[in-house]
Simulated assay, not measured.
Amino acid sequence: MRFGTFIPQGWRLDLVDIEPADQWRVMATVAGRADEGPWESLWVYDHFHTVPVATEQATHEAWTLMAAFAASTRRIRLGQMCTCMAYRNPAYLAKVAATVDIISGGRTEMGIGAGWYEHEWKAYGYGFPPISERLGMLREGVDIMSQAWATGRASLDGKYYQVKDAIVQPTPLQANGVPLWIAGGGEKVTLKIAAQYAQYTNFTGTLEEFDHKSEVLRGHCEAIGRDFSTITRSSNFNTIVGATEADALERLAAVKERMLPHVGEERANDIERQYLDSPGFGAVEQVIERLAERERRGLGYAIHYFPEAAYDTTGIQLFEREVIGALA
């Protein structure tokens, strides 16, 4: 199994109590640790307002961070989970990603999806079109980016995007362009787009849901004559690991306490339940067993979000040593 890790950027209230002037230093330090460690990739979210509620707390912009990490790391691959297609013109986004790929020496990934966070869509003036339109924008945008990276030019007279001979030079350093991660488990459209364009998918759920969506993806691949095994399936995990389950619970309590003033008791309790239900929560032996079972069912890539990352890296070190050591 391959492993990626999220870098704290504020979206999930994971930089609270850290002064804005110090936040880049914290993010860069976490990224530097990952770069020197066993992780294959680092990831950020593409959002503007915090969750589970919009607050005045910092949320740093994803592609600005991509460029910064491209210049400040040396080995680790750089991704977003996931870029919202409608937040940037796709020809422009293709240009941005190509530039980041060159700065990084060919280490950029493109996680891309249709978007969902209605509050920030409307706040930033994007409206909030129905899911059918957002998925149509995703399909057309992926087409434009794929053209741009393959040929250095892109044209599309689409329903949502009109691009006429847009020049994207230089193209990415990676021979086949920036790898596409199509994020989301929508069975009729998203997974069909993934079958056509993606090198990676990203969807979560129970074991049964993972199996079902995998079979849906297989069916879409067979319908267009693509080898299903050429697509790596990935999932994201909310992760708090301890030497014992009691240790993990103690760590979770500290996370909840830090979030409480910003989200209120009801939301803090919801967050606590989400961690307790996550395959990434518990003693190292429990987490290893759950991830190993998903690997047996075809999960090839696990991306882990550690809410402690900006404050305490001992849990991450334990995960690196024990979990990655057992499964990588």
Rank of each mutant, 00 (worst) to 15 (best):
N176M: 12
N176P: 07
V178T: 04
A183P: 11
G184E: 00
G185Y: 01
K188L: 09
T190P: 03
L191W: 02
A195G: 13
Y197V: 00
Y200F: 09
T201I: 04
N202H: 14
F203Q: 03
F203D: 01
T204V: 09
T204M: 11
L207A: 09
E208K: 08
E209R: 12
D211C: 00
K213H: 10
E215T: 12
E215W: 09
V216G: 02
H220P: 00
A223E: 09
I224W: 06
G225Y: 13
D227R: 11
D227P: 13
D227T: 13
F228R: 13
F228K: 08
F228V: 10
S234M: 08
S234E: 07
N238M: 11
I240Q: 01
V241M: 07
L249K: 10
R251W: 05
A254H: 14
A254M: 15
V255Y: 08
V255Q: 06
M259V: 10
L260W: 09
P261F: 05
V263I: 15
E266P: 06
R267A: 13
R267N: 10
Q274A: 15
Y275S: 05
D277E: 14
P279G: 01
F281M: 09
G282P: 01
A283R: 01
V284R: 02
V284M: 09
E285K: 05
Q286S: 15
Q286F: 11
Q286V: 15
R290M: 13
R290Q: 14
L291K: 05
A292S: 15
A292I: 10
E293R: 14
